[in-house]
Structures are given as C-alpha cells and as structure tokens.
C-alpha cells in the first residue's frame, strides 16, 4: 500500500462478529513475543472476513508480514468501542496521519455506504508515505473529497494534516464532525483546532496493550476523568475528554 505498509485479509469465519468502525483486533503475530499486537479493523471485504492495514515498524509487524499467505493466526476481537456516526446533514472530516489512515478506512467505507459526505485529509512526512488511495475513491459530485498534505511539501498541501484541516474548516459551509487517527502530536493539534471551533471530534488512539479487555490497565491514556484504558474504554475518545499535554508527553 506504501513502501512500508501491507493490506492483509483475514478469513475469520461466519461466527466472527462483524466489526464496527473504530474497533480493533489483537493478533498473535509470533510465538516468541510476549504480547499480541492490536490493529484497527480496516475493512470488511466480505462477511466473515476483515482487512488489516499494517505498517512494518517493529518485530511484531514484521513477523506478521513474513507469514506465508494462508497461515493460521490467532485473533481476539472485535475489541473496544466504536466511532459515533454523523448526523445526516453533516460532513465527516476524516483526518489521518501516516498509518493512522488504517483506523479510518472501515469508517470511510461505512459512511460511503450510507451516502454521507466524506472529506478525507491524509497526511504523511513525504509523498511515498501517503495512504489516501486505500480510502473510497473521490467522486465527481463532491460527495467524497480527498486532500493530501506532506510535511516536506512533496505532494499536496505543504505542512501538517492538522494545518490542512484548519484551512478546510475555515472554508466549510456545512456542520462538520471530525474523526482522527495518527501520531499523538497530530491528534493534539486536531483536538485544539476542533475545540476552538466547537466542532465535535473523536480520536482513535493507539497504545501498547497487554490483555486487550480492560483487565491489566496497561494501556491507559490520561483523560479529564482520570486514566482510561485505550482497549476497553476506547480506542475511540472524544478529544475534549483527553488531557492533550499528557497525550503528547507520553
């Protein structure tokens, strides 16, 4: 999908519950790793199947990428909560940084099926890292719009995807709802921009996880009502609930 990311399709069988946008799955990627790896559901190509969009970043993701096609892999899921779907009259702004686009892909597909207006803003450091092409294709009638941003200006808007969001919100003529997923600094910037304008915003967070079900309290994030588990209270949070300084510091 990009020089460092792959799309995997898993055959989970008819008993596997249909994942909701925002939910994730814990994958037993390798026998010699202590922890499973959490990945957002990135698509449902057919009933009983799901897609994961994975960037090769460390031992776990590399082990997954090296598995032969057809390998049996243990999965635990669907886990976690889900995105709040938008009202019929609002534009959904999907803000994805880097591999964060993976967390928005299933949402984009679901919104598209419901004929919601989608405006996707996709950022990356440089042009080859952009993952906008995994989202539903732009339409001529403007119902699906996609814009890209690169930190180095090699493609699209020159700057961060949060900077691009600011420009888009300034020009927007309809009520909006923002969904974001990406690095902590990008989420914090997106949260700031939306809070100032009173635009509802949800972030899908990523954290190192152990149990995945809220038992071990290992994957917490600081919120205005104390530490919450990303795995069981999230992974989707209203950004007004997050303590942004701690999100960036952690």
């Amino acid at each position: 999908m990009s020089p460092t990311s792959y799309l995997f399709t898993f055959e989970a069988g008819p008993e596997f519950p249909t994942p909701r946008p925002g939910q994730f799955v814990n994958v037993a990627v390798a026998d010699d790793l202590t922890l499973r790896r959490p990945f957002s559901f990135a698509g449902i190509p057919a009933p009983g199947r799901f897609d994961l969009l994975v960037e090769m970043r460390g031992k776990g993701t590399r082990a997954l990428a090296e598995k032969p096609i057809g390998s049996a892999v243990g999965v635990l899921g669907p886990l976690g909560n889900e995105f709040t779907l938008p009202g019929a009259d609002s534009v959904s702004l999907l803000v994805g940084g880097g591999i964060g686009v993976a967390g928005l892909r299933l949402l984009a597909q679901e919104l598209r099926r419901g004929y919601h207006r989608i405006h996707a803003l996709v950022g990356a450091r440089t042009s080859p890292g952009l993952l906008h092409h995994v989202l539903p294709s732009p339409t001529g009638d403007g119902e699906v719009l996609i814009e890209v941003a690169t930190d180095d200006g090699s493609e699209g808007f020159h700057g961060t995807v949060a900077g691009l969001l600011e420009r888009v919100l300034n020009e927007l003529d309809a009520p909006a709802r923002v969904y974001c997923c990406g690095p902590p600094a990008m989420i914090a910037a997106t949260a700031d921009i939306t809070a100032k304008r009173g635009v509802p915003c949800e972030a899908l967070l990523e954290e190192m996880m152990a149990c995945g079900v809220g038992a071990c309290r290992g994957c917490v994030v600081a919120t205005r009502s104390g530490y919450k588990s990303v795995c069981s209270d999230g992974p989707v949070f209203d950004t007004n609930e997050l303590v942004l300084e701690e999100l960036v510091r952690a």
Binding site: L35, M208, G218, V220, A222, Y227, E246
Partner: peptide, 14 residues
Amino acid sequence: GNAPPRLVETPGGL
C-alpha cells in the same frame, strides 16, 4: 496508578 507508558515488551518478557 502510574503515568503511561505502563508497558514495554522485552525479549521473552514484559
């Protein structure tokens, strides 16, 4: 509890 991060994987452990 403690400030995050609270977990880090190690070879053969956690």
